[in-house]
């Protein structure tokens, strides 16, 4: 039982937290700008590498590098929106999807050019896990990631429900026509969508580096579970996306637990879980668990 918690449940929650932070951006961009942002995973990679540079240049720990990574990643996202997505805004959104597919490649190749293709870590050395109640062993990095994600979730909830911009965003996501009749400024809303989406993607990217390592394909590989999490939570429902991310992360880890002497699925098929969940949602509940938009 303790093995289950220590080696499956806690890593699952950690992984889920990372998916969750990425999925918030996917869900909000889909809800407000109405397109599936294929460059979101690579935006995460960009954030992780900004964090890496901050760690190298300033000699600070990875957690302290997060604000720098967030700020720079937001600038990158705002620039990408201005240069690549805004010119296509009046066209059917599928053109923006195609553009974002190309932007993913642009992000990745720039990262490969600037930082090279070798895997990197923020800090070397073994961290001793914290032992609670004699048998609950949790790695420090897992505690940090889980607590930080919980705090971000609370902050996001407060932002969406108690600030003018948060309310505007929910309004635009629920009914763009009504929101624009009500005089809400669409470009400003879009800017804030990018700032929050990119900021959370950068944090998620640094967390991936903290949990495992930083490499140039990391974000692209996370794209599928992030899309699945956003769909599971319901498009345009950021808090739903967090729940979706946690569900998928936990499901991926505990599916490899040997419940009946053998694991339910082979660990090499872990990333298929997200896909199966995505298909089930599309078949049975396309609006997601929390009644998101069906575009």
């Amino acid at each position: 039982m303790m093995d289950f918690i220590n080696f499956y449940l806690v890593p699952g929650i950690t992984l889920g937290a990372i998916y969750a932070l990425g999925a918030v951006g996917v869900s909000m961009i889909f809800g407000i700008l109405r397109f599936a942002h294929f460059a979101h995973g690579d935006l995460m990679t960009v954030g992780a590498y900004f964090g890496l540079s901050a760690v190298w240049l300033l000699g600070i720990p990875a957690l302290a590098a997060i604000p720098i990574a967030v700020a720079l990643t937001c600038l990158v996202a705002l620039f990408a929106d201005r240069a690549f997505y805004k010119p296509l805004r009046q066209l059917p959104t599928i053109y923006t999807v195609i553009a974002s597919f190309g932007v993913a490649l642009i992000f990745r190749s720039v990262v490969q050019l600037v930082w090279g293709t070798e895997s990197q870590v923020y800090s070397v050395g073994f961290q001793k896990p914290i032992v609670l109640f004699d048998s609950l062993r949790i790695a420090t990095r897992h505690i940090q990631i889980i607590l930080a994600t919980a705090a971000i979730t609370l902050g996001l909830h407060w932002f969406l429900h108690h600030t003018q911009m948060g309310k505007t965003m929910r309004a635009v996501s629920d009914d763009p026509a009504l929101a624009s009749v009500a005089g809400l400024d669409p470009e400003k809303t879009i800017r804030w969508t990018w700032i929050i989406g990119a900021g959370l993607a950068a944090i998620a990217g640094v967390f991936v580096g903290l949990d495992t390592d930083v490499h140039t394909m990391m974000g692209w590989n996370l794209l599928l579970p992030m899309f699945a999490a956003a769909l599971l939570g319901g498009i345009g429902k950021p808090l739903g996306a967090i729940a979706g991310g946690l569900i998928i992360g936990i499901a991926e880890e505990i599916c490899t637990y040997p419940f009946f002497g053998e694991s339910l699925i082979s660990p090499s098929y872990k990333s298929a879980i997200a896909f199966v969940i995505m298909l089930l949602i599309l078949i049975f509940r396309p609006r997601g668990l929390f009644k998101g938009r069906l575009l």
Binding site: F30, F38, A228
Partner: peptide, 24 residues
């Protein structure tokens, strides 16, 4: 069968998934 009734973006997401599963 699963995706064509939805907006094109959903098919895009699902097709990335199918490629990933086939690769695995």
């Amino acid at each position: 069968r699963i995706c064509v009734r939805l907006k094109a973006d959903y098919l895009a997401m699902a097709s990335i998934g199918i490629a990933e599963i086939i690769r695995l």
